[in-house]
Structure formats: C-alpha cells, structure tokens
Amino acid sequence: MSEPSVTTVAPAWALAAVAILGALVVLAAALDGALTARGNDAASGAGGGVATPLWEAARLMRQRRRRTVEADGMLWRLGGAGLVVTAVLMVAVVPLGEWTIFDLDVGVMWFNAMDVMVWALVWLTGWGANSAHSLVGGYRFLAHGLGYELPLMFALVAPVIAAESLNVGRVAAAQENSLWFGLWMPVAFLVYCLGVVAFSVWGPFAPALGADIASGVGAELSGVDRLVFEVGRYALLAAGSAFAVPMFLGGGAGPLLPGWTWVLIKTVSLLLLFIWLRRRLPALRPDKFMELGWMVLLPAVLVQDLVVAVVMVWRG
C-alpha cells in the first residue's frame, strides 16, 4: 500500500488505549447506574446511581466465585474473560485522530473477525456452567447471531466500497472534505449500530441474559467471573462505538479541536446513546428477530451496498 494515512505509534501507547477503553467502560456503567436509579425512584442518598460501577466492582471483588458440578471450568472462564480481550483487540485498529496502534491493511475484516469471536465466547459462558438456564441463554445468543451478523457484515462493506480500502485509517480519510458515510449510508450505519448493541448482548438483544431464564448466560456467574463478563459487555459496546467513528462518523474530522478529541467526543456520544437505549426498548425475541434480520435488514443493507457501489462507479 502507498503512504499510510495514519501514524503507527510505539507499542507502549497500548497502555493509553486500554486506559481510554477502561474509562469508557466506567463512564458507560455510571450512566447506566444513574438511569436505573432514576427509573426505580431510588432515594437521593443512593448518590443518583452514578457510583454504581464502584459499588458493583467492590461487591463482586468481595464475592466468592462458584463452580457448578461438572462444569467445564476452563471454557466457562475463557468465555467470560475473553470478551474484554476481544474488545481490546477491536479498539487496536481504531485510529485516535492521526495515531493508531495497529495499522492493518484489512482492519475492517479484523474488526469483523473479533465480533464473530464474541459468538463463541458468549456461547461458551452459557455452555460451560452445565446449567440448564445458562445453556438456553447461550443458544439464544447464537440464534440472535444468525439474525444480526450478516446484516452487520454487509453494513461494514458499505464504507469499504466508498473508501476503496479495508484499512480503517483510509476509510476515515476518505470522508475528509466530504459527507460522512453515516449520513449518506444511513441504512448501513443503523444496521451497524444494531449489530454493536447485539454483539454486546445489550438492551433489546439481551434475551440471552433474560429475566425469564434467571439471567441465562450469567445465571451461574459470581464474583470476579461476573465482573469480567459485565466489563466485557461494556467494553464491547465501547469498542463498537469507537469503531463507528472512523467508519461512519468522519473519524477525527471536526472544527477547532484536534482530531483525537473529536474521535473521543463522537465515541462517547454514540456510547451514551446505546446506554440510554437499553431501558427504552423491549427485547427482540430471537425467534422473531431471525425473520426480521433475514427478510428486512439483510435486503436493506444489500440495497444500500448496491447504491453505494453505483454511486462510486458513476462518480468515477
């Protein structure tokens, strides 16, 4: 490839990247706590729920872990802990303004590969516990996956067609001095957002953790096992929001402030939107959603891809 559009920074900066992701997780959990407290009419003495991440982390760090009878312990823990690692690997390809940790030529595919890994991880967490409720939850997630994954993949393709590159930095650069991809490919952007919420097992896509099956995949998790699982979900949501910035929201483009601040501002905005959305929507039941995913979302993104391709050829 010709000259890179972003600078690859020294590996030591990876610490900063992980720290930013961590901060996003805390921020997201704090907002969720605040919204939950408000929804439940919690007394003001409870601090408005903003400190929820702190209390929850302390609680889970004090709580003992559990091991169910004949559980597949290793795969079970691997599932929970793997979510955080996956999220970290996702943000590695997201450029922060002009800097990136991992300037991969096929960065978009990398992200895609990571989000598919979540299938295995969530399912393993459900399967490993050897508990009926968890098992049902694990399979529910796979069923959801069948519905959201293909639309998500084709949604990722739309910006790639327009940017003529799978490199995330180049996709961001292609939006310079032109309309953001999110604006002229709204269907792809919406479906992408849906996909992020889905692979984070979040909000309407949380039947795998549903109240009807005693929190399903999470039914047997306690202590630090639950902590890393929950952090992993928030981290995935944050990573998905961050990845949307170079793909659909113009990367570091924005007036006055330097590029990296704009990336953060856009990431936080999208993340908070996802958090806010959680309580507002009923669950999309996996059996119903499968039909929706295949018969509505999939054709819609295919048409979106077609439109983008035609526009690109017509332009030039």
């Binding site: 939950t36 009419d41 919690a42 007394a43 003495g45 601090g47 729920g49 005693a214 999470g218 039914a219």
Partner: peptide, 13 residues
C-alpha cells in the same frame, strides 16, 4: 430499589 439496591435473578448474583 429505593435504597439503590438491585434485584437478583439467580442465587449466584
């Protein structure tokens, strides 16, 4: 809920 606690869905939680 008013004291800012949470309802558990399973004994693990």
């Amino acid at each position: 809920l008013t004291r800012g606690w949470s309802l558990a869905m399973s004994p693990a939680d």
